[in-house]
Amino acid sequence: MTSYALFLGCTIPARQPHYELAARKALTKLGIELVDLEGATCCAPPPIQSIDLETSLAIAAYNICLAEEADLNILTLCTGCFESLTIANRLLKENRELREKINKILSNAGKEFKGTKEVKHYLQVLMDDVGVNHLKQNVVKPLNNLNVAAFSGCHLLRPSELLRFDDPERPRIFDTLIEVLGAKSIPYKNKLRCCGGLLRGYADDIALAIARDKIVNAYNAGADCISTLCPFCFLTLDLGQMLIKTTYKEEYNLPIIHYAELLSLSIGVEPKELALDFHKIKVDKVLEKIG
């Protein structure tokens, strides 16, 4: 059994327990042991990077240190956490000057970044540790050609120079993992373009306009649902449709489903075992289609 330090971040445990629940069930079922880290903090995502990049690196490094001490690689669910931690991990491993600077800060808290561990997104764990074939064998309830508009979110792929997750212009990993479940990953306009989520709270009108584009493009392409990996994308697109309804007087009713939920459903987790009531846009249509 492969073990990982589960890095939950802030939003998932506090706002989207349905994501956490589905991920824990699916990954455990597929033979991945998840260890909760003691004392983990915020990963220092873009809002904190905007305030001070150096502080962000120090906070991310602090959390990586916790995993180093536990002798575990990190598994993230949230793409935001994946980005912050991966960037810090790579930069500090590869830039000695910066590492020394950050370690000087960390020494105040009794930590030292050693650079011995990896940060992985759970999709990478599915590809590398579980394997596509093993995953396929575990699919007991194929998703019946469900038309899925895959939306990985920006920070799974970019900046590719540091994240090195997949080809930033022609990503395949997420689509492969959707199709393994028996669904169809459909092409749609501006698939790799941002959802605008990070502008929420500062420029809600712009954020919503960008989110609307995403919904419209997926809707026009005939998607049964949009599948997400990032809690911010989920929120922006799920709750966003409520706001679109009031602002634009448009109704799409396009379910937004975290990939972990699709994964759970396909490997035999019953819908009632998941917290599907957390979705603003009801997912009944999807459940109906996959039977």
């Binding site: 905007s50 920006c154 970019r158 605008g196 989520g197």
Partner: peptide, 12 residues
Amino acid sequence: IWLCASCYNCQE
């Protein structure tokens, strides 16, 4: 400066 959505398309 606060209107960047940090999507990194430009950087890419």
